[in-house]
């Protein structure tokens, strides 16, 4: 079990999750430090998305505990976890296609009307959202949908943002724009836990890293250490980061 670090915002200790008869998470120990960006890496099927969904309460842990800022949220319902200041950006550009860009953001602003300064900041991060403000979100391109999904998560200040594979299926130019946006987001001291397959992005934005395999965290440490160690990358991920520039 990981030590409960004084600056840990989120801690998973020995978390097991079953989906139907399948035992997906098999004792996940993970610590997400406050104020940084933690990358969650691993091969397909390692349990990264299930970890995110378990944190968010979309799947419930069958054993172990999930602690957010000292509060046990293992059995909490998803809306309650959201109200504690956790935002979730699922994979596959999860927006509400039938609603306009504006309506998508208004829905996510739970504490009241959209604040103008916050909106200006979001438009600075993602200018396309201003351009297509009144259009149904289903009409946006893949990259714009992903931007809207992230914008929805940051429309209000959050304690923790969970982002699942934001670059999946996106063109390199869009990925670069996302990297810049995430770096700006980091400057606000928001804590982020991000699942990513794109190692270039992981190295560019990650502060700490946890690598998963077979439903467990098999390595945790600084992102810079993993980025500098080709042998470790090959052992943990099966590939060198240099091959993913």
């Amino acid at each position: 079990m990981p030590d409960a670090l004084p600056d840990a915002l989120l801690t998973l200790a020995g978390v097991h999750t079953h989906i139907a008869q399948y035992h997906i998470l098999q004792g996940v120990d993970l610590t997400v430090p406050r104020g940084g960006l933690t990358m969650l890496l691993g091969r397909n099927g390692a349990g990264k998305t299930t970890t995110m969904r378990t944190i968010m309460g979309l799947w419930h842990a069958s054993a172990g505990s999930v602690t957010l800022d000292g509060r046990d949220i293992t059995a909490a319902q998803t809306p309650d976890i959201s109200r504690l200041g956790v935002a979730y950006v699922p994979e596959n550009m999860a927006i509400f296609a039938g609603l306009t860009v504006r309506e998508n953001l208004v829905l996510a602003a739970r504490s009241g009307p959209l604040a103008d300064d916050r909106l200006d900041w979001i438009f600075g991060l993602f200018p396309a959202l201003k351009k297509f403000w009144a259009l149904p979100a289903g009409n946006l391109s893949g990259g714009q949908k992903q931007m809207l999904a992230i914008a929805r998560a940051v429309v209000e200040p959050r304690d923790l943002i969970l982002i699942d594979e934001p670059t999946k299926g996106l063109a390199p130019a869009i990925v670069q724009a996302l990297i810049e946006a995430v770096n700006e987001l980091k400057a606000t001291d928001t804590t982020i836990l991000m699942v990513e397959q794109n190692f270039h992005m992981a190295r560019m934005v990650g502060d700490t890293v946890a690598v998963m395999d077979d439903g467990r965290v098999v390595h945790a440490g600084a992102m810079a250490e993993l980025a500098a160690d080709d042998a470790l990358q090959t052992r943990l991920l099966g590939l060198s980061m240099d091959s993913h520039q």
Partner: peptide, 23 residues
């Protein structure tokens, strides 16, 4: 109304609506 928007969000994807904090 805002209530109607939440209904439409639930119709599209109830899990996403829950993740935004709506019961």
């Amino acid at each position: 109304s805002p209530f109607g928007r939440v209904l439409q969000a639930i119709r599209e994807n109830p899990f996403r609506a829950e993740a935004l904090g709506y019961r």
